[in-house]
Design a protein around this nucleic acid. Structure first.
Length: 271
DNA sequence: ATGGGCACCTGGCTGC
DNA sequence: TGCAGCCAGGTGCCCA
């Protein structure tokens, strides 16, 4: 479900309710997430005051005065802020009860999401330490992308979805960025010119920024923490549009599988 | 080092 | 109506 723009939308949605609040109680109804929640998780998290909510790739970092909660939403996870007592529904796995009377609730049908509590620098955590630059940050640019691609034979779509190359480019936005940069997804990464890599980096940044600005993409069930959907779907050029006319040239959009992921492109606009 | 494939899950949709 | 089969927004890990 959530890609970087949806995670960022989630961050912005929950941060105002979390900042400065103390976590009074943690309720775990299902420990079997991607990595099982360890015994004692509740006790370790409880009692700390939130100092900020940030994001690294698709990981949310809820910093407190005693450690950091690292949350990943996986494919189907979501976080919502509830006001007062609300009965949990199916797949509501974890609650963080705040001293404001509100509650941060994690729901995840597929349980590909995860939570980790770390006491030191969260960026040193094994899951985060090897990540490439943030696509919206200053360290990400076409030259770096081009340099990393030297000698690489993987398809460029898989290359930009590799979190060690650039962090947080998921399946929707990879197809969309390649369309905007007019590059075919199956082209080998190492065979793309420096100039075109610069266009690609710019497209990645642009598509993610635009999606963040409208609250992300709602495909099936994603809703932001306040319950509203993301509106980027209307701006998708290729994703899930196989057989429909290209918005640029009218040619029917193609579908193919790359690295076991659905991939969409226009065979005329993209070369 | 690189590339490819599998695994972890549930739910929704399609087609027989 | 029932059910098998397929697909889904992620990503760590294992193998060659």
């Amino acid at each position: 479900m959530p890609e970087l723009p949806e995670v960022e939308t989630t961050r912005r949605g929950i941060a105002p309710s979390l900042d400065g609040r103390r976590i009074l109680r943690v309720v775990v109804r299902e420990r079997r997430l991607r990595w099982p929640l360890p015994r004692g998780f509740e006790k370790r998290v409880r009692g700390h005051r939130v100092t900020g909510v940030s994001r690294r790739a698709k990981y949310l970092l809820i910093a407190t005065d005693g450690g950091t909660l690292i949350v990943h939403l996986g494919m189907s996870g979501s976080l919502r802020v509830l006001h007062g007592r609300v009965l949990p529904v199916v797949h509501d796995h974890v609650d963080f009860v705040l001293d404001s009377g509100r509650c941060l609730r994690f729901n995840d049908p597929r349980r590909f999401g995860s939570m980790h509590w770390v006491s030191g620098d969260p960026l040193k955590h094994p899951l985060l330490v090897g990540l490439g630059p943030e696509p919206l940050g200053p360290a990400f640019h076409g030259d770096a992308l081009w340099r990393l691609a030297r000698g690489r034979q993987v398809a460029v779509k898989q290359f930009i979805m590799d979190s060690r190359v650039v962090a947080g480019v998921g399946n929707i936005y990879a197809s969309e960025a390649l369309f905007r940069a007019r590059i075919r997804p199956g082209v080998q990464a190492g065979r793309i010119s420096r100039t075109r890599m610069q266009a690609l980096a710019a497209s990645i940044r642009e598509v993610l920024e635009e999606a963040v600005a409208v609250g992300g993409t709602t495909l099936r069930d994603y809703v932001s923490p306040d319950g509203t959907p993301g509106y980027f779907r209307q701006k998708l050029f290729v994703y899930e549009r196989a057989g429909e006319p290209c918005r640029r040239c009218g040619t029917l959009i193609r579908h193919r599988v790359l690295g076991q992921r659905s991939t969409y492109y226009c065979r005329v606009c993209q070369r």
